[in-house]
Amino acid sequence: MSLDVDFRFQAPDARAPGAFAVPRDGRVPLTRPIVHVLDRRDPEVAAALGAVVLPRPERDLLAGIHHADRRAELTERRAALRLAVGAAIGLAPPLVPLERGPVGEPLVTGLGLHVSASSRGHRLAVGLWNRPIGVDVEAPIAEAALPRTRMHAREIAAVDAAAPAERAITAALVWAAKEAVWKAAVMPVSRDPRGFAAAVDALGQVTVADPDHPAVSGIARWLPELEGAVAVVVSI
């Protein structure tokens, strides 16, 4: 059965009431994964993200990134995370209990909520779910840029088997799926990415071949309006 994802293509509205009342046990009762897919070129998206005031520690950390475009991209990614969680529970973005994990991954404390975020140029995606979730966005990947040394042989074969005109899109879908699987499974940095194979079928369903891997369910889609691929994978 394919993963049922609530895709949203507008910036979260932090001014709106929370969609969920947080129960006494502190867990946010989502009924399905929520994934915000945003185009940073959209003036409304840029305005919503630009209005978020990040806490001082996050601003200081981001200020240390010397490349201006990369700093802006990561700043908006962090703002989107705070907006998405805040909109779900009716909390102002600066008050969202968002921390950094051991390898820099975003963590929400005290709400039983898992989050994931990804950005690639103007493409930005943020996912929320009650179980580990991985979200990734990718631009078309040209043959020369394909990270073959980090891919399983089955993944390379899937890309090579695609028609030449579709190969860059297929590569983006496969790589987005692989990255999303990695995040959802909370794999250690030391894990060899060639040790597991992510696959995307004709319907966009993501599967993974790895005997040591926890069960996952996922979906990958090519979004022409975003000129990119988005993959969502959750632990089941």
Rank of each mutant, 00 (worst) to 15 (best):
V53F: 02
L54T: 10
L54Y: 11
L54V: 07
P55W: 07
P55A: 13
R56W: 06
R56G: 04
P57T: 10
E58S: 13
E58Y: 09
D60K: 14
D60S: 13
L61I: 08
L61A: 15
L61T: 14
L61G: 13
L61Q: 13
L62W: 13
L62D: 11
A63C: 04
A63T: 09
G64P: 02
H66T: 15
H66N: 12
H67E: 13
H67A: 14
H67I: 12
A68N: 03
A68T: 12
D69Y: 03
D69W: 03
R71C: 08
E73T: 14
L74Y: 14
T75L: 07
T75H: 12
E76H: 14
R77E: 00
R77A: 00
A79W: 03
A79N: 06
A80C: 03
L81F: 02
L83P: 04
L83E: 09
A84N: 06
V85F: 03
V85R: 08
V85N: 07
A87F: 04
A88M: 09
A88I: 02
A88E: 13
A88R: 09
I89Y: 06
G90E: 08
G90P: 05
G90Y: 05
L91E: 11
L91M: 15
L91G: 04
A92I: 07
P93D: 11
P93G: 13
P94R: 10
P94M: 10
L95E: 15
P97D: 13
L98M: 09
L98T: 05
E99P: 02
R100G: 06
R100C: 08
R100S: 15
G101I: 03
G101L: 03
G101R: 02
P102N: 11
V103N: 12
G104I: 08
G104T: 07
E105S: 02
E105G: 01
L107V: 15
L107T: 11
L107P: 02
V108W: 06
V108S: 08
T109N: 10
T109W: 07
T109P: 01
T109Q: 15
T109L: 14
T109Y: 07
L111H: 14
L111I: 08
G112Q: 08
G112W: 06
G112L: 04
G112T: 08
L113Y: 05
V115N: 01
V115C: 03
V115Y: 01
A117Y: 01
S119G: 09
R120H: 13
R120V: 02
R120D: 12
G121D: 09
H122D: 14
H122G: 05
H122E: 13
R123V: 02
R123S: 07
R123D: 03
L124A: 06
L124D: 03
A125M: 00
A125G: 01
A125R: 00
V126W: 02
V126P: 00
